[in-house]
């Protein structure tokens, strides 16, 4: 088990190297010089600074050396310096990271909870009104852009009904200990997580429904019924876990999309995460931050992906044997 874990996490390394190379290629393709990019076109005039970067990135060396130097600097977590925030890029990104991870996890939780539940109901009550309602709902939520859904939810729940905050992560002045803060964050989290989560919930609903119907046709379900198990027991103990496997696979494949989606959603709800940082950096051409975000967010996805694989591994004993 430990060896498999290690091997799975070792696979992340070439991926991250790939992302760094991709980054480097993008910098090379950009219209300005490497130095322009890394100083975010801030017209750094301090000759000592320019000289330091020249050496750091090997500007006078061939491209391949530059690439190796760049890889080395990224691997030592040196993504450069953000003049805009007057901090290292790493520090800037790490400040925004927790909010991103919270939003991502909350969205995935909603997507799994709603999607799996709706898929199970639709499959158990296949070809009934319930099934049709759920399927139509899934088709619609699967087509709605998440940011637009977010705005519409905001119009209903924040503007019209006034139940939930319009944006941000915490209210000013709310300070009732850890629980109070957690509740406050959850109130702010509800709409963004819902708008992002419902899109994926729609996808999981469709996959879960199809997969449940598929599993229902397997022989072992008949065996389970022949044992005298009730309908609910058959569904929960025998169908559900097998049907979950394709959903888990899909989840692993989509972590990157979820993280990307949170970037868009956060601008709707001014959730203070990597999205706002990214957007701000793109607008102000603060390239070191943009590239750092790309590498670090890829790293998050790669790690999360490995975790999902391990979850799959625990769910399906057949994989374990291999």
């Amino acid at each position: 088990m430990r060896r498999i874990l290690l091997r799975r996490f070792a696979q992340i390394i070439p991926l991250i190297l790939g992302v760094i190379v991709l980054n480097f290629a993008l910098i090379q393709m950009s219209p300005g010089s490497f130095l322009d990019v890394m100083t975010a076109e801030q017209q750094v005039s301090d000759p000592a600074m320019i000289e330091r970067m020249r050496v750091l990135y090997g500007m006078d060396k061939p491209v391949i050396i530059q690439l190796l130097k760049y890889i080395w600097s990224v691997l030592t977590l040196d993504f450069g310096y953000s003049y805009r925030q007057n901090e290292t890029v790493l520090a800037v990104i790490m400040q925004a990271l927790p909010a991103t991870v919270i939003l991502m996890l909350a969205s995935i939780a909603i997507a799994l909870l709603v999607g799996v539940l709706a898929g199970v109901v639709a499959a158990v009550k296949v070809n009934t009104l319930w099934d049709n309602l759920i399927s139509v709902g899934a088709v619609f939520f699967f087509a709605a852009p998440t940011f637009w859904l977010g705005i519409m939810l905001m119009i209903v729940f924040s503007v019209r009904l006034g139940w939930l905050p319009v944006g941000g992560m915490r209210d000013i002045g709310v300070d009732h200990g850890v629980i109070g803060i957690a509740l406050d964050v959850m109130r702010h989290l509800a709409l963004p997580a819902l708008s992002l989560g419902l899109f994926y919930a729609a996808m999981y609903t469709r996959v879960m429904r199809a997969s449940m119907l598929e599993v229902f046709r397997h022989d072992f379900v008949r065996t389970a019924r022949a044992k005298g198990l009730s309908g609910a027991q058959v569904v929960v103990r025998h169908v559900f876990r097998n049907a979950l496997l394709p959903v888990v696979t899909l989840l692993g494949l989509q972590l990157g999309t979820v993280l990307g989606g949170s970037v868009v959603i956060e601008t709707v709800f001014s959730w203070p995460d990597i999205g706002s940082l990214m957007l701000d950096s793109v607008m102000s051409r603060n390239y070191p931050v943009v590239l750092g975000v790309l590498v670090l967010s890829s790293l998050i996805v790669a790690v999360a992906n490995a975790l999902v694989d391990i979850a799959y591994f625990r769910l399906d004993p057949r994989i374990r044997a291999r």
Binding site: G256, G260, V263, M278, V282, V290, S297
Partner: peptide, 12 residues
């Protein structure tokens, strides 16, 4: 597949 797609598009 790993690179978060919107972030990649924005970077490009």
């Amino acid at each position: 597949q790993t690179v978060p797609n919107i972030i990649f598009i924005l970077t490009v």
